[in-house]
Design a binder for these strands. Structure first.
Length: 240
DNA sequence: GGATATGATTGATT
DNA sequence: AATCAATCATATCC
């Protein structure tokens, strides 16, 4: 029963939405090529699902046909035998019941394997990790800028995250993911990120300098930083 | 082609 | 609920 519900939920065993649905989905997937905005893998997924559904239905039909054929055959045999020996209707009923049970277990197996196929398809297509795309240059610029200019406490508030998300054209949870990854990877070996850190430190320093230069007439534009860099001080956290 | 970078997911922790 | 740490699956680089 669980299998039935599952297949129904996935739209495999439900009412067939016209035989051409699979073809239509496939055609849509093949024709529309440009907008990579999520629609493509979705239609691809749907096409594959439709394929599974088609196989499922044709197999199911085959089984049903075989079942009725076999039942007929047995009935004929019994009828023939009834001329030589008395056969009670109960016995016939029993035989039919046995046959139907046999075939329903076979159908069960079909349903199970179909379920498995659907699950595999799901994990294959709906797992976002499989269609990962890197953020564009300026998005990572913005994120890195924030990260390195808040290195002592790189935990943007909800509002800050929303701002960053807007600037980078990504979602808030993507911003959270990015900061989570960045923090852990930064602290994992700070050395590897030193260059990047310096780069963004200089960048923000230059920005600050240009801002102050607008206020007070510029004095030393060549050396943006006195002495060392502002010491990356994001110690991984209190807990050791 | 493998090494590395990177975004996303998962399970644990608080 | 937010974050960490490990891990997965893909992108990108060489």
């Amino acid at each position: 029963m669980r299998l039935d519900n599952m297949l129904l939920a996935e739209g495999v065993s439900g009412p067939e939405k016209g035989g051409g649905s699979a073809a239509a989905a496939a055609a849509a997937a093949a024709a529309g090529g440009s907008p990579n905005d999520g629609s493509i893998e979705h239609s691809d997924y749907r096409a594959k699902l439709a394929q599974i559904r088609q196989i499922y239905h044709s197999e199911l039909e085959k089984y049903e046909q075989a079942c009725s054929e076999f039942t007929n055959h047995v009935m004929n045999l019994l009828r023939e035998q009834s001329r030589t020996r008395p056969i009670s209707p109960k016995e016939i009923e029993r035989m039919v019941g046995i046959i139907h049970r046999k075939f329903s277990t076979i159908q069960m197996q079909l349903k199970q394997s179909t379920c498995e196929a659907v699950m595999i398809l799901r994990s294959r297509f709906l797992d976002a990790r499989r269609k990962r795309r890197n953020f564009n240059k300026q998005a990572t610029e913005v994120l890195n800028e924030y990260f390195y200019s808040h290195l002592s406490n790189p935990y943007p508030s909800e509002e800050a995250k929303e701002e960053l998300a807007k600037k980078c054209a990504i979602t808030v949870s993507q911003v959270s993911n990015w900061f989570g990854n960045k923090r852990i990877r930064y602290k994992k070996n700070i050395g590897k990120f030193q260059e990047e850190a310096n780069l963004y430190a200089v960048k923000t320093a230059v920005d600050a300098a240009s801002v102050s230069a607008q206020a007070s007439q510029a004095n030393s534009p060549a050396t943006p930083n006195s002495g060392g860099y502002p010491a990356p001080c994001y110690t991984p956290d209190g807990r050791l």
